[in-house]
């Protein structure tokens, strides 16, 4: 297959995934609103504890007193991350369920190319969800998200996602081999929730602070909050960007090689069509 052919396969897979997703419109609405519904209890809890939307101790840890934008940014970025992990990681299980995986694997296309198409679709669908969240946050929760900051934020988000999708592709390989990955995805979700600053600053504990350094999401969230809440310029975040680029290279190459290995193992085990 030429590069042009592979690009067309990515676009065909992207179209197919979005068409199938759009055939269940209620799910799109649900996934657009649900993350905010998860967020609200934390907002109310925070309000009850500090008696308003800002806290001096929160400012001491993060540099910004208002915790709502802090949590909102964490929620929006984690929407990208977790939808990618669920969408790409679990996508081959869906193909198995539909009975179509064997036909993809038996074609002359590298399954990783198909996964890239699924990645693109997940990115588009997650972007739609994040846009809904941003609109609700702006119009109903009074959060001020400046358009001028979107471009640098998107650069950081993309750098985060490239590596993360590499990780999700490796996860798709595990789905091929072990079929049931819900437990693993949930465990990973809670590792991220606990050790990266999605809902609270990791500085609250020395353990979370130390372990958060191993998770790319930490660097991205710190950088994005720096841009949005503390008006930092992206140029001053070059160290974060270098770390993310380094992690991208490791995760993309590692994810690809691991997927190839796991796919071959699955062919040997004869479990491609099982679910």
């Amino acid at each position: 297959m030429t590069f042009k052919n592979n690009l067309k396969i990515i676009l065909a897979e992207n179209k197919k995934t979005i068409d199938i997703a759009l055939s269940y419109p209620i799910f799109l609405v649900f996934w657009g609103i649900a993350p905010l519904l998860w967020l609200l209890p934390f907002v109310f809890q925070g309000k009850a504890l500090v008696g308003g939307m800002s806290s001096a101790s929160f400012k001491a840890l993060t540099g910004s007193a208002n915790f709502l934008p802090f949590i909102l940014i964490g929620t929006m970025v984690s929407t990208y991350i977790f939808s990618g992990l669920w969408g790409v990681g679990n996508s081959l299980r869906e193909e198995t369920y539909w009975g179509t995986l064997e036909y993809i694997i038996a074609s002359p296309t590298n399954p990783v190319v198909v996964l890239l198409g699924k990645t693109l679709a997940e990115f588009i669908l997650a972007s739609a969800n994040v846009t809904i969240q941003a609109l609700i946050a702006t119009f109903f929760l009074g959060v001020n998200l400046t358009l001028a900051k979107i471009f640098p934020v998107m650069v950081i988000v993309l750098l985060l996602l490239i590596g993360f999708y590499g990780f999700a592709i490796a996860f798709a390989g595990f789905t091929l081999l072990i079929k049931e990955v819900h437990g693993y995805v949930h465990s990973l979700e809670w590792v991220f929730y606990l050790f990266s600053p999605i809902r609270y600053p990791v500085e609250v504990s020395s353990i979370t602070k130390t372990l958060s350094a191993l998770i790319p999401l930490t660097y991205a969230l710190v950088a994005i909050r720096g841009i949005i809440l503390l008006n930092k310029h992206i140029v001053n975040l070059w160290q974060t960007m270098l770390i993310l680029i380094g992690m991208d290279i490791v995760l993309i190459i590692g994810g690809y090689l691991l997927f190839q290995y796991l796919e071959r193992k699955t062919r040997q085990a004869g479990t491609i069509s099982q679910y």
Binding site: M1, T2, N5, K8, I9, A12, E13, K15, K16, D19, I20, S23, Y24, W98, G99, T100, E102, Y103, I104, A106, S107, P108, T109, V114
Partner: peptide
């Protein structure tokens, strides 16, 4: 060189049309 047909109904994307199914699989063969 190979075309594969297996038994059973669940080998296609049920939420897509017959034509869209074929378009997708055509892409996989370039």
């Amino acid at each position: 060189q190979i075309g594969l047909v297996t038994s059973g109904e669940r080998t296609l994307y049920w939420k897509l049309s017959g034509r869209d199914n074929l378009k997708f699989f055509a892409a996989l063969y370039g």
